[in-house]
Nucleic acid binder design. Structure first.
Lengths: 178, 178
DNA sequence: TAGTACATGTAACAGGTTACATGATTGA
DNA sequence: TCAATCATGTAACCTGTTACATGTACTA
């Protein structure tokens, strides 16, 4: 059910279409959630059925119509209730660690390529997050409480990416000694 | 399909029962995977159907029989092939960051409790990992390659937990200023 | 005698992925 | 004219969770 709440969280102060929500997951929101467009459209349908959001078709010029979703009072209450409830820790599922765990099954070079690719992806992610930090949160002390909360979610993404890069380096250093 | 490979990875040099695999996910293996017992039993059934593992019923005294699974040559090959294939980055889904994102909907104290609980959980996890580090990998330089790979997966868990704790402190510091 | 550890499962449902499907506009 | 962007969806399938179900042995 968490995807519903992630969508409500994005919609609550910015009514958007499914397409725009999907785009959002590719920006700074990507530090805390990611979903495929199919999943988003399905979930928006369910949210509409339960009366948590309402949709409005907006005609556009030169582009197809878009369905813009707005959170209803019912949806706002549901999101508030959910936010107040105890929080679940997210389960760990790291493919790369499974591969490293059985690393002896493959050539060193294969393992090294995996780690290098992994490192590069986190480097890219970090560069993106750093850009959002510079562009959106330049003066941290002048941020509103709301914006500061959002800034802290970005900080989490930055820390996570930084930590992965450091770990990749630790592994690459070891692989270099073999 | 990744759970199958995580199970094969655990079974490949230590034939185990479903119950034991489930226990393993609560120890150092927990830094890279976690699954419910229902999922494990179902997946073991599938693995047996596809001939990647074979099961043997072991009678025990004073305890119920256990079904011990061993990886077949076919399973070993499948795991090796999978390990050599490009690695997927795991999707981010962090409930706590969604809650922080809409933190203004709830009382400060609620938010603070969420973060404190989160911090405590990672503290506990870190303490566990540190114990595994001390007990299992005391002298890093004398480890076999295989063991060193496993040590590096544990290092990843340690870095992750450390990074989360630091982030929680950053959030708590901010909350204290409000 | 109540709880925990041992041990394995089924059934129903929810969440997520992959493949397929359509169609306009804009820029290289 | 080819690819990318905008825009929304369906269908089939696989993965993961929750609730239910059973039974022994040991320990507090």
């Amino acid at each position: 059910m968490s995807l519903s709440y992630a969508l409500l969280a994005l919609l609550i102060d910015c009514p958007s279409s499914g397409y725009e929500l999907n785009k959002a997951f590719e920006t700074s929101v990507g530090c805390f959630w990611k979903a495929s467009h199919q999943q988003i459209y399905r979930e928006l349908g369910k949210l509409e059925d339960s009366g948590w959001v309402k949709a409005e078709s907006i005609p556009q010029q030169g582009k197809p119509d878009k369905k813009v979703y707005t959170v209803t009072e019912l949806g706002r209450q549901a999101l508030t209730d959910w936010t107040a409830q105890p929080c679940n820790i997210s389960p760990v599922k790291e493919e790369i660690l499974v591969k490293l765990f059985v690393g002896n099954l493959v050539e060193r070079e294969v393992l090294q390529t995996h780690i290098e690719t992994h490192r590069r992806r986190y480097e890219e992610r970090l560069a993106l997050y750093r850009m959002f930090e510079t562009k959106g949160f330049a003066d941290v002390h002048s941020l509103s409480v709301d914006d500061h909360f959002r800034y802290l979610t970005l900080r989490c993404g930055i820390q996570d990416a930084t930590s992965w890069i450091a770990w990749c380096d630790e592994v690459l250093d070891y692989l270099a000694t073999l």
